[in-house]
């Protein structure tokens, strides 16, 4: 397989977005607070990156209320899972090729 850097999805250029996808790859759902704690970023920063991934169709948002407080849960979509797996494969190939 021939790979080039163009195969790396633009959405994963940011390490925060890569982090969000990594965390969601091993957890069915995570809420905003949990993601914030794992990534150690500000609310605004996280919200921006989440919106971008949402626009790509890589993550899903489920809004609900717990004790009248809004609770937002995020999960990975099928397309997101595929894009993330492909991204990992390309990373692997790039690194193996340079050994």
């Amino acid at each position: 397989m021939k790979v080039s850097f163009d195969d790396l999805h633009k959405a994963f250029e940011s390490r925060v977005r890569l982090g969000i996808m990594s965390a969601l790859a091993v957890n069915d759902t995570l809420d905003f607070t949990a993601l914030k704690e794992f990534l150690d970023v500000t609310d605004g920063n996280l919200a921006t990156h989440i919106k971008k991934l949402e626009k790509e169709g890589f993550i899903e948002v489920e809004k609900s209320f717990i004790d009248n407080k809004p609770n937002t849960k995020y999960s990975m979509t099928k397309e997101g899972k595929k894009a993330f797996d492909d991204h990992l494969k390309v990373l692997e190939t790039i690194i193996n090729a340079r050994k």
């Binding site: 390490r15 890569l18 982090g19 990594s22 965390a23 091993v26 957890n27 995570l30 790039i94 690194i95």
Partner: peptide
């Protein structure tokens, strides 16, 4: 354009995040 080191760092970050967020 990212350098090779950046990709290695990306992979390390992915691994650490998966571990941290699940264990």
């Amino acid at each position: 354009m990212k350098e090779e080191q950046d990709y290695l760092k990306d992979i390390a970050e992915i691994r650490s995040m998966m571990e941290r967020s699940s264990k």
